[in-house]
Design a protein around this nucleic acid. Structure first.
Lengths: 149, 149
DNA sequence: TCTTAAAAGAAAATAATTATCCTTTAAGTA
DNA sequence: TACTTAAAGGATAATTATTTTCTTTTAAGA
């Protein structure tokens, strides 16, 4: 995907900092503000934390990115895309998208509540297969631990 | 429900402050920490904000209460109960529980991902029937606006 | 009652986020 | 290509949110 166009289409100026942020999100899938800041300082040694927040906010306001709020964790941000859910391993922190078919539930709730629904946020949490077997392993100190898919 | 027993069952001391917090949550259904603090100061004029946080944290840790993270809003807390979803009106802020049948989705995700799922968090957001009709109404300044159920 | 570990309260410390102000730059226009 | 300007960046201060520390009070069990 071309992030320059993505930004332009949403009426935002194309800056190296924004491209860097989007590129990081693309690589990592989901990333918190501070992870973002830590990682981006390699490329933009003088980038300000204020710039990070300003960009995250402006890109959220124009729907280029989306915030995912996660129980007991800090929010992560992802490039906006069609509705989907998330799956979290409470043990190792693995976090991934899942395809969803919420249509039936959404329709049902729409009818009963008469709400016009525009947004869904679903996070399922549990223990991933690897952590189920590595029995006595305590909760990881590290926010993103082993990768195993 | 008897909150004294609820606290005892979870190994927490019964204090007037905790009972006040639980009673407020019971009345309001869902409430943020600062709303909680504002409201509780009437009864406990000298209650400390630190006490609020400490109690919210201890009652969360022992699963007496649950945090609900909501897109673009501050978290609200509720007395823990069986799994359910939430419905938010983005216009007036109305916020309510909804019954859910996520079983099919949860089973499906469990099988595909091999995760052992233990927690679900679903928030549906949209426009409530009243706000749909009061056409040009802008987003309310007030966190909890008209009540209409 | 007496004992004690947990909780409350006050204040300070930390963390997270936003605002301010001045400089720089992207992007449209001459 | 240079000029103009509104938007964005960077540094820092200010706010806001949350946690920690330390001392006093209190719930709950002996």
């Amino acid at each position: 995907m071309n992030y320059e166009n993505l930004l332009r289409e949403h009426g935002l100026k194309v800056t190296p900092q924004r491209l860097g942020i989007l590129s990081l999100m693309d690589q990592k899938g989901h990333i918190s503000v501070d992870e973002l800041y830590l990682n981006i300082k390699d490329q933009f040694t003088s980038i300000s934390l204020a710039t990070m927040y300003k960009n995250v906010n402006s890109m959220m306001a124009s729907s280029v990115i989306t915030e995912v709020k996660i129980p007991k964790q800090k929010s992560r941000f992802e490039i906006a895309k069609e509705a989907h859910g998330h799956l979290l391993c409470q043990e190792c922190g693995e976090f991934m998208d899942i395809e969803l078919d919420l249509e039936k539930i959404v329709d049902d709730v729409s009818i009963k509540s008469k709400y016009k629904l525009v947004e869904t946020s679903l996070v399922l949490s549990g223990i991933c297969p690897l952590c189920q077997h590595s029995s006595a392993s305590p909760v990881s100190i590290f926010p993103v631990a082993h990768s195993h898919i």
